[in-house]
Nucleic acid binder design. Structure first.
Lengths: 255, 255
DNA sequence: CGGTCGTTTGATTACGATCAAACGAAGTGG
DNA sequence: CCACTTCGTTTGATCGTAATCAAACGACCG
């Protein structure tokens, strides 16, 4: 069992979109858990698993994915510190997708029942967690649109914009410069392209003066131009969702 | 205000995956609402709208979609009678997508607050509605995979399989024969292809002896073969989700 | 009977996949 | 400290699936 301060990240994340009172915060901090530190590529959940724990991501990055019958991978979402990983499984008995560590990561494992009890005894927290899953669902929808109807440059630019804003919201950098937490192959699996093509498009984004790359570090040279190329609007992220602590306008005009 | 029996469909839908007690059922039936009958293509919600009502679909079909900056449409989901349409907006202030009628449809409009109160005062119902949104999210994930990583035949076959099972679960036919509620153009927008190509693939599915088409009526000639071509597994639909009324195995081995 | 909407078929194009190989950086072991 | 391996990135050449362009056809409707 780790020091409870760790769960503070989770409190902050939920308060980003839903109002909580002190009792609510305390209840979250008091969640029983064991911390687990995992290496990159460790599976936290496998499709078909019976779900018994809810993982709270305390540090590092994690991703959701599925595999097709012939072994192709589709990445479904990327998760950042403070996010609750298994809310999507918490009322469904069998996991329908895999969750795997992207980087080295620390995850607090909370028993399923503790989350159920939390939701029932602290309605504000229940609403906050529910809202959280609704925002995730909104992001899934945007991804359907992204892979379904946008060409490759637009698609990749869109993902870069999304990361910029989400990393900033998570307090992991600003939206003009950040460290991309994945390889080009993983990027390809997130946008439904091949790694080769992703590489070419990243190059083109650089040549067009939209981004600068130095290894995995992404600097957005011209947010407005990138946003236009990306067909990006931040609405689907619901960053200024009512009642949240952070529900003021972001300091820089973003999208 | 319409006769309350109508909402029975919604009760049945929720009970399909979550246990309810008589008081819960009564609370759902007692939901204040006005019925609205709409023509095909009527918008029920527009992206950017402030959400004040939750629509319960009593008859007909409805779909969610988004438009790209250059006017391309991506259909995000199809909804069948008994489904609650605005659960995804119920805690989010601004709608991030459009909801439009596919066919002539009847929708019971329930004020947002009534849904909030229902969830708070009847925890079983709250959990059922939350679970409902989680299953929707699971379907979104499968669609991300479908448009991201599957080729055109697989993609379309997959959609046909999904409809078969969902229509059967909704009591609108069996999984071997059903009426497709959409045009080939709408189909194309659901799977991220062009209408022309959808037409060719449907033809091919017929030639391969997987389906028979008569106008919009689809007959699945060989479920197993179609399922294989479609790379389809019903897991993501969570049809046998715990505690539900219908949580027995389906009568015919399906997937 | 024209008009509209949806389906069907044909011809050509293009975007991204695939195949192949080299390069660079980081880590390992001798 | 330097070979050697491994993993990720980069570049080039060719291929193929689905898009695009174009037009005819069929059904339903007023």
């Amino acid at each position: 069992v780790e020091p409870a301060e760790n769960l503070e990240l989770v409190v902050r994340k939920l308060e980003g979109h839903s109002p909580l009172e002190e009792a609510d915060r305390a209840a979250i901090r008091a969640l029983p858990h064991v911390s687990r530190t995992v290496d990159p590529a460790t599976y936290l959940v496998r499709e078909g698993d019976r779900t018994e724990y809810c993982g709270l991501l305390l540090s590092g990055f994690v991703y959701r994915h599925k595999l097709t019958g012939n072994g192709q991978r589709q990445i479904l979402s990327i998760h950042m510190p403070g996010e609750m990983l298994d809310l999507h499984n918490i009322f469904l008995d069998i996991a329908d997708h895999n969750i795997q560590a992207l980087s080295r990561a620390v995850v607090a494992m909370v028993p399923r029942q503790a989350i159920h009890a939390l939701a029932e005894n602290f309605p504000n927290v229940g609403r906050a967690m529910w809202t959280d899953t609704l925002i995730d669902a909104s992001i899934f929808r945007e991804w359907v649109m992204n892979v379904g109807r946008r060409d490759s440059i637009t698609r990749i630019a869109h993902l870069l914009c999304e990361f910029a804003l989400r990393l900033e919201a998570a307090g992991l950098g600003n939206h003009q410069q950040y460290e991309l937490p994945m390889t080009q192959e993983q990027l390809a699996d997130a946008v439904g392209l091949t790694p080769v093509h992703v590489n070419r498009i990243l190059k083109e984004l650089g040549q067009r003066g939209l981004i600068i790359r130095d290894k995995r570090a992404i600097t957005i040279e011209d947010w407005r131009k990138l946003r236009d190329v990306a067909d990006f609007s931040s609405r689907y992220l619901h960053l200024d969702q009512g009642g949240g602590l952070h529900s003021r306008q972001p300091p820089v005009p973003v999208a």
